[in-house]
């Protein structure tokens, strides 16, 4: 078990390192000199350019630059945004809690909507409940999230004035307002993921319900609740867990757009603004941060997978 974990952690670290190299090189691959990218200015006198290059260490060989950069990141120095002038760490620090809360709420919505519907669809396969669930899943999969957001705003903010259409209030300041601002965005994001979860749960459960060991469970006279809830579900959890891990990545994608639509000053909006304003230091920082998050989440999911699968846990090798 430990060997497996170490191996996975090692690969994760390697991926993270390569990702950082990609991010590092990406910024320097942008047309125009890195000085332009890093400061946002376009004309320099040769002297000023030389000064900038020295200040940012751009005259050093590339690998050295990389190592310096990594050293700085590890120490928490992410630089300043040439657009806003603020330290990037501060900007990220402000935006991060918002995005985190949104992501967690969205995942909750997705789990609460997706998994029970998937289970229902599997046990009532071929009946109305199945068709309805599948229909809802298709709906969730096909709808553009930003449009869904706009429609909800139209309905609940413009037409009915029930929920606010933009902005953010911190939980510690006003819990009710906080949830009011996040309800629609979380719902929009959550339904997309819920659709995927529902399908995955359904197909996973259908597969386990066909197995021999479920037949044995029935032959033992156990009630349907126990057969489905204990025997079948337990074994389909593994596939569902993998999908949940993947969906975190999808959520992080969707977060960007949803924050735009709902005017939430989170990491997503930060990223999009940075992209449009060619704020490369910020883009660099956020890209690295997001990649790190995704990699960590995948590693955590590997852990969960291990816990769920006794074969892996005991033998130390994925079955």
């Amino acid at each position: 078990m430990r060997a497996y974990l170490l191996r996975r952690a090692g690969i994760s670290l390697l991926t993270l390192v390569i990702a950082s190299i990609v991010v590092f090189l990406g910024v320097r691959a942008v047309p125009g000199s890195p000085a332009v990218a890093l400061t946002g200015n376009t004309d320099f006198t040769p002297a000023a350019l030389a000064a900038i290059n020295r200040a940012y260490g751009l005259d050093k060989p590339l690998p050295v630059q990389y190592v310096d950069w990594v050293g700085q990141i590890v120490r928490g120095h992410l630089g300043s945004s040439p657009v806003t002038g603020l330290p990037i760490t501060t900007e990220i620090g402000n935006a991060f809690p918002i995005t985190t809360e949104l992501t967690i709420l969205s995942m909750l919505v997705a789990l609460l909507l997706g998994i029970p519907t998937g289970i229902l669809a599997a046990i009532r396969r071929g009946h109305t409940a199945d068709y309805v669930s599948n229909g809802l899943a298709l709906f969730g999969l096909s709808i553009p999230s930003f449009w869904f957001g706009i429609m909800l705003i139209l309905l609940l903010s413009v037409h009915f004035s029930v929920l606010p259409s933009a902005g953010f209030v911190s939980f510690s300041v006003n819990p009710a307002a906080n949830l009011a601002h996040l309800l629609m965005p979380a719902f929009v994001l959550g339904t997309g993921v819920a659709a995927v979860l529902m399908r995955q749960t359904r197909s996973g459960l259908l597969e386990t319900l066909r197995t021999d060991y479920v037949r044995t469970a029935r032959a033992k006279g156990l009630s349907e609740w126990v057969v489905v809830g204990k025997h079948a579900l337990r074994n389909s959890l593994v596939t569902v867990a993998t999908v949940i891990a993947l969906q975190f990545g999808v959520l992080l994608s969707g977060v960007a757009v949803t924050e735009e639509v709902f005017g939430l000053p989170g990491i997503g909006q930060l990223t999009i603004n940075a992209v449009f304003q060619r704020d490369y230091p910020t883009i660099q920082a956020v890209a690295l941060l997001t990649a790190a998050l995704v990699i960590i989440i995948n590693l955590v999911m590997d852990l969960v997978y291990m816990v769920l699968s006794p074969k892996v846990r005991l033998a130390g090798d994925p079955g």
Partner: peptide
Amino acid sequence: ELRSIRGSDIAMVFQEPMSSLNPAF
């Protein structure tokens, strides 16, 4: 009613013991 007979009055042993036992328990 049948469920109270299954496993108690009438019990069945299947052909493939590997797939007939739940690997997670």
